[in-house]
Nucleic acid binder design. Structure first.
Lengths: 298, 298
DNA sequence: GTAATAGTGTCTTTCAGACAGTATGAC
DNA sequence: GTCATACTGTCTGAAAGACACTATTAC
């Protein structure tokens, strides 16, 4: 029925296990999708409560941290609209959780988010896919633009061309350019199929989530939502590196989080395969002390 | 009809004139409201296009810069729901415009946003309303909380108590605490009526917008959306100060924007009441050169 | 002892913050 | 000349970035 609207909820639920950033998906067809739900105004007082309930019902999970990301409402973003259904508008959410416990559904799966965005993982050096498939295509797209300065600036900034620095937060910008130049399977006309595709526009929602969480850890202590109450500094660093897709300098990282008052030692030690490590916990007082307490470091 | 949803669009359109940050409102009742529209899926391909069309229809304005803010959907946020209507979910937008031109509607008015948030303007020193009405109330609210550490940290961080620094971006957090303690007229039970109220939850949407724009100017060159193509550095500084509600050091500001490659001199000069000032223009190349090119300085 | 991981010290460069000064116009 | 505004130079201290070093366990 034209003129009608269906309001959905698309949560991106993230968990980091052994330095692998995982996203919760439902794999019941060819392409994984987010565990989407729909908003029923009769049942929930707020949108966030509705998202929490939906996550619980879909995958039997109680997320601690949940924040709204963005509302997506492009025409025909859902094929059910093409088939004569209402306009499917959906509110994306970002959820963080400490461990990948599940309710036990068969088709629910935690997937390494770098399967969907292989060009975003710089922890083992510059991703191969960039030079093999991406850089030339983006360069050609810029050249096609001719005098279009906007396109040139957009492309060089997003992909770090011409000596521009890599911006780890520009995940969505990069995905959108790849979509525009037909380098991902979701694009209506495409020549490449970089990264694993997702259903509908869910990879776009995931890109939004990755960009948001990468930005957020730098000025809000959300990283601790992904860790147990007590952890070693190396564990903390590896978790930050997993989200950011980059390596950090060890001693500088330690100085930053410890001298910065973000964490405090518990006095206890934990056995490793070498010298035992001291364990630390988050220090909530830092929120009032510093204007933006996060783990932003290069 | 329960179970039904109406999707609205609430734009916060901002313009700075002579160092006064203005927000576009409709004043047709006791409380000013945002120039809201509703989303008709049959007419627009994307939500952003719908927002642009709605702004044009409501106030005859073409905004250059427009970004989505947040989607609000609390039960009974609109009294029409209380009267038996559908759930009114609305998507907030932030629009920036260079000059306060209008289509000529009688009830449309540009209002200084510090009328709604007098505690946010620190340009002439610490706002009086803070010490006269706010600090003690917030302190009492923290004390009532007793052992509630979350409440203490939230309150001290938001209002800069106990020596904590003032965080110019925490506009929404401050408004929400004031709402919770009944210090604004919009709260169902209130003892104070700090700042000018707005209709519905529009002051909350405006708070979201102010917080967003204050954060954004620090890492994206959006400030230039509010200025003519060519401007003096003093004009630029006063515009930044208007949004941030704070004073900046002149020579440091100049060094930051000029040495940082954010602006470049045009070679032309403009008469003032003293020595003529050189005019500058935005330098778009900076977007590719620096990871987050903005005017963030204290 | 070696291997492995935990943790410390310090040098250099950059830049924010503060402040004092000079330049160029109107009158 | 004075007044007003535009613009420049430089000192200081904090912190980012890079790197070399020491410590404590298992074996």
């Amino acid at each position: 029925m034209p003129g009608e609207i269906a309001l959905g909820l698309d949560p991106v639920i993230v968990c980091v296990v052994d330095a692998v950033p995982l996203v919760l998906t439902v794999v019941d067809g060819e392409r994984p999708r987010l565990p989407a739900g729909s908003f029923d105004p009769a049942r929930d007082r707020t949108l966030e409560l509705a998202a929490r309930r939906s996550i619980d019902e879909q995958v039997g999970l109680n997320v601690g941290y949940l924040e709204q990301l963005y509302t997506f409402g492009d025409r025909f973003r859902d094929p059910r609209e093409t088939a004569g259904g209402p306009r499917y508008v959906t509110i994306g959410y970002l959820g963080l959780i400490g461990s990948p416990a599940l309710g036990g559904q068969a088709d629910v799966e935690w997937i390494d988010w770098y399967q969907f965005f292989p060009w975003e993982d710089w922890r083992r050096g510059r991703p191969l896919v960039l030079d093999k498939n991406v850089v030339d295509r983006v360069g050609a797209w810029i050249a096609e633009g001719g005098t279009d300065a906007g396109r040139r600036i957009r492309g060089t900034a997003a992909f770090g061309l011409d000596g521009a620095p890599w911006n780890d937060e520009a995940v969505l910008e990069r995905y959108e350019i790849l979509y525009e130049i037909g380098a991902v399977a979701e694009a209506p006309v495409h020549r490449d199929v970089l990264g694993r595709p997702m259903a509908l526009d869910h990879r776009r929602i995931l890109a939004t989530a990755i960009g948001r969480v990468r930005a957020k850890i730098k000025y809000r202590p959300v990283i601790f939502e992904l860790l147990p109450p007590s952890f070693t500094l190396w564990q903390l660093q590896r978790t930050v590196e997993a989200l950011g897709g980059m390596r950090l300098h060890k001693s500088n990282f330690r100085r930053f989080v410890e001298d910065g008052g973000l964490v405090v030692g518990t006095g206890e030690r934990r056995a490793t395969s070498g010298r035992p490590a001291e364990t630390f916990r988050f220090r909530p007082e830092v929120i009032a002390e510093r204007p933006d307490p996060g783990v932003g470091i290069r």
